[in-house]
Amino acid sequence: MRRFTRTLAAAALTATVVAGTAGWASGSSRQPVTGAPVGTAQWRADGLPDPERMTPAQTASYFASMSPRRQRELAAAHPTVVGNLDGAPLALRYAANARATGGRYAGQQVLAYDPRDRGQAVLVYGDLAKAAHVAVIVPGSDTDAGHLAPLIRKATALRAATGGRTAVIAWAGYTTPVGVGLDAATGDLAEAGARRLTRLTEGLAAVGAAEPSVFCHSYGSVVCGLAAPGIQVKDLVVLGSPGMRADNAAALGTSARVWAAKDPTDWIDRIPNVQVAGLGHGTDPTAPEFGARRVDAGDAEGHDGYFAPGTASLRTFAAIAEGVAR
């Protein structure tokens, strides 16, 4: 009976979205990529500390205890591990990932790369070590290591809107849903993503980077809602959100300022803000009763237009990132 109820709810949610998006095809169920980085077995066999047992702070201490030469040796011998260790020196991770990706992202700073399944990649724009302000963009469905163009556009637009003063992380660091289907209607992938997002923010703190503002788009806002109690961030900004799996901003359990944006033409507005039998993501964060600060998105267009140059939403996002928005 419970399975039947979930199936009916999923069908209703999917039908609503497909009708509102001119027939966008529904996606299939996926298993999240989790666990230790690729290459960890050999890393352990070489007598090195288990990555799954070290916190980012412990990882930072471990690398600080060795010489730069030894750090480079480890990065050369185990690039897929070092490149994905939150808390390891930033420059070392960039070098390790340049090696691991074989130049796939030539000229870009790759903070993390995981080739498993559809692939995950985390790119950095700006000097993360020195920037006074840091922003993280968490994307929604259909984002992976081979489909980064929309996320990169958002990241570069936000950085440009701050005059280059904010370092921006394009975080395709979790398994996203494909299309619209059961994965997009449930929180399973978001729960795995939330753990990874939490570790990212712990890693930023461990290397002394500025406390970030996090911008969460579409299904990414479900990730951010679930991660909210465990991440130390200045601001939590959701845009085009189907819900955050919380009844209101206070229920997120965060000390960060919570902001929400939704433009009038966004098809996400047609998704029922319900949570039944594990399906759906709850209250619309832009609803007055949710209690988030509203971001003007009246001149954004569609579900993907919030970071478009010249929009009021992008100007506000830049002000939030730089800590001057009120």
Rank of each mutant, 00 (worst) to 15 (best):
R3L: 13
R6I: 11
T7V: 09
T16K: 12
Q31A: 14
P32R: 09
V38Q: 12
G39T: 01
L48K: 09
P51L: 09
P51F: 00
R53P: 01
T55F: 02
T55V: 04
P56G: 02
R69H: 08
R69E: 15
R70W: 10
R72V: 12
H78T: 11
V82H: 00
N84H: 07
G87H: 06
L92A: 09
R93N: 03
A98E: 11
Y105V: 03
G107L: 07
Q108Y: 10
Q109C: 04
Y125V: 03
L128Q: 10
A129G: 00
H133W: 06
A135T: 10
H147F: 12
P150V: 09
P150L: 14
I152P: 00
R153N: 13
R159P: 08
A172P: 04
A172R: 00
A172G: 13
T175C: 06
G181S: 13
G181L: 05
L182R: 15
G187S: 15
A190H: 05
A190M: 09
A194S: 14
L200S: 02
E202T: 07
L204R: 06
A205L: 04
A206D: 11
S221M: 13
V222W: 07
V223F: 01
P229A: 06
G230Y: 13
G230F: 12
I231Y: 04
G240S: 09
M244H: 04
M244C: 12
D247R: 15
A256W: 12
D263L: 00
P264E: 01
I268Y: 10
V276G: 10
V276R: 12
P288R: 10
A297F: 08
A300C: 14
E301M: 13
H303G: 05
D304M: 13
A308P: 07
A312L: 15
A325N: 07
